[in-house]
Design a protein around this nucleic acid. Sequence first.
RNA 1: CGGGACGUAGCGCAGCUUGGUAGCGCGCAGCGUUCGGGACGCUGAGGUCGCGGGUUCAAAUCCCGCCGUCCCGACCA
Length: 475
Amino acid sequence: MALPTQADDFPAWYQEVVRGADLAENSLARGTMVIKPYGYAIWESIHDALDLRFKQTGHENVYFPMLIPLRLLEREKEHVEGFAPEFAMVTHAGGEELGEPLVVRPTSETIIWDTYSRWIQSYRDLPLLYNQWANVVRWEMRPRLFLRTTEFLWQEGHTAHETHDEAWEETLRMLEVYREVVEDVMAIPVHKGRKTAAERFPGAVETVSIEALMRDRKALQSGTSHYLGTNFAKAYDVTFLGRDGEEHHAYATSWGVSTRLVGGLIMAHGDDKGLRLPPRVAPVQVVIVPIFRTDDERSRVLEAASRLADEWRALGLRVKVDDRDDLRPGYKFADHELRGVPVRVELGPRDLDASQVTTARRDTGDKTAVPLDASGAWLVDAMDQIQRALFDDAVAFRAANTNEAATYEELRAAITDAGGFVTGAWCGAPDCEAKVKAETKATIRFLPLEQEDPGAACTVCGAPGTERATWAIAY
RNA sequence: CGGGACGUAGCGCAGCUUGGUAGCGCGCAGCGUUCGGGACGCUGAGGUCGCGGGUUCAAAUCCCGCCGUCCCGACCA
């Protein structure tokens, strides 16, 4: 398997890594996938990191139904118009045609805000800070394992607030939680930004997101946080009696990340040998491959391996001894490289005789002999180094693939020839945005969180620029 | 929905043009030799050839219909 230089080769490379590393496979139903144990373990690492932070920021988990009556969805006009093409609907149940179809949730704002109307009476009930871990279904045209599946796993936070300021603050707080997890845990650098009206979540007043760059120079929207204003409160009649004794509509936010992040992880860090996992998300951080010929050697090596594994686990490392009897070491080396295990430890008679282990870093390929009594500390240190190296690598890659454009020709050339992120001035006109998309397939991925004067003419039409925009071709 | 491919063993494919015993690689099972970078030998298990109909002595192969999947364009976390 070779890391393709042509962006077009990436889907094939990507599928090969996903299947080869035993993460997932296509399922029977169109565009859906079966997540296998190793792939799910990676998702669990991400899940746990997020869930911990949600709790730390005062959120609680809840669960709402998967089936939503169509009539309920139709109450927020923009929202339903945005999602209607992607609905999967249940029209028959219990052996009969239903009087009213049930929509398999594409997202849960509607049923949640309908419920919130009963839960919220007074300003004393606010804020409501709830999150749900769930599956959703969106009938997308071109599914791809993890990156865009018909059904996917995600979390969706839905909060209600007394004031605009408080809700906007929550929108940004959760975006920062996403940035922190994706950058510090997954080692993927992201840009925080604001979406244009065309890219906004249907029904939102403002959408902010984190945007990452994959190794094929395509952008990946990796997490979104929406400020919904009072749109949903009005549609679902959520009012509360305020401190002033008057009725008010509640201010809302919603935010989510999905199993797409697993795909992003592969596309951001993968190399020609397969996955490279940052230690903080790696289900297995250290794998010991025992090497032996005779039965005597076997028992001697395996005994040492299990003793070392326990010793290293006591230091907080996730260690696995690959004692599969029927496979040869070379096969195991390649297997764990494909799966992205950060450090492989080779342990054989030669090592034991020399009181050492042979270590190999997945990110660099460096092999080093480490004395047994220093091995635990070496590994702990290596985890930090690899975590940082992968992040630094990705930052450097992004910097090398970010360009500036002053004219339309430069913008077009940068997108089609170089790929990656291209920044330039934009006048704010939807027409200019649409023209670039039609001619290059690139969209404005984000604008700065705070509007900035670009101090230049619109890259597309030459009118005075009002925004500093960043374009890219996205997944 | 428009354009193009494809459906044969768990996976990847050949066979179809020119109808006649259903094959290859990987994987799987057994035995033996191997084992510090993806081992090898021998033996073996495994298939309603997507579904339905037609032509024919005979259909994976030819004809008709249906179903499904994938790729390219418009959607999206």
